[in-house]
Simulated scan of single mutants.
Amino acid sequence: MRRIDAIGIGLGIFVAGGSAYVLLRLVGVDNLEAGTWSQVLLFVGLIGWLLSYGFRAVGKKMTYHKQREQYEQAYFQKRLEELTPEELAKIQAEIEQARRVGNKE
């Protein structure tokens, strides 16, 4: 997320809270109750956002994790392409040997 995105989201939340207050006042709710309900709405929204952030972080579905996976895949693909046929055959033989040892246990 860019800095301008964070600023925009912050301003959007500020405007949403003010709009909720104004709408409640227009409906006829008194000052104190309108303020309380607009804060409740913002608090529930914040809790929802925190939960969604937590699920994305735990599930590794965040931009950083995706970019890192793409980088690692591209890095290993490049390294694989740089191997000579002899090196590749040697690595494949080692993998097969490790599989056979793993299956025996």
Score class of each variant (00 low, 15 high):
40 V>W: 03
95 I>V: 15
42 L>W: 03
10 G>S: 13
56 R>V: 06
37 W>M: 13
16 A>C: 08
60 K>W: 01
102 G>C: 03
104 K>Y: 03
101 V>K: 12
54 G>C: 05
60 K>R: 13
1 M>F: 06
57 A>E: 09
5 D>R: 04
69 E>A: 10
57 A>W: 11
89 A>F: 02
92 Q>F: 03
67 Q>N: 10
71 Y>M: 09
11 L>T: 12
63 T>D: 04
2 R>Q: 10
74 A>R: 13
4 I>V: 14
94 E>I: 11
104 K>A: 12
104 K>G: 01
93 A>G: 15
18 G>P: 04
6 A>H: 08
83 L>I: 03
32 L>A: 15
23 L>V: 15
78 K>N: 03
96 E>N: 15
41 L>C: 05
54 G>V: 06
39 Q>F: 12
41 L>T: 08
36 T>R: 11
96 E>C: 03
73 Q>D: 05
83 L>E: 06
52 S>R: 01
62 M>I: 11
3 R>C: 04
22 V>D: 11
48 G>Y: 03
46 L>C: 10
36 T>W: 09
50 L>S: 01
65 H>D: 13
29 V>Q: 10
54 G>Y: 06
45 G>E: 02
17 G>M: 13
25 R>P: 00
48 G>R: 04
78 K>R: 11
67 Q>H: 07
101 V>P: 00
60 K>L: 07
31 N>M: 14
93 A>C: 02
60 K>A: 10
70 Q>D: 08
22 V>T: 15
1 M>Y: 07
72 E>M: 05
75 Y>N: 08
91 I>F: 04
35 G>C: 04
63 T>F: 07
26 L>E: 15
26 L>R: 15
27 V>M: 14
82 E>S: 12
102 G>L: 09
71 Y>E: 11
31 N>Y: 15
49 W>E: 07
6 A>D: 07
93 A>K: 14
90 K>I: 07
48 G>Q: 05
5 D>G: 05
85 P>I: 01
92 Q>G: 03
75 Y>F: 13
68 R>F: 07
63 T>M: 05
45 G>S: 08
63 T>G: 02
93 A>P: 00
21 Y>Q: 09
90 K>S: 11
80 L>D: 09
71 Y>A: 09
17 G>W: 05
61 K>E: 12
49 W>V: 12
26 L>I: 15
6 A>K: 12
37 W>D: 06
2 R>N: 10
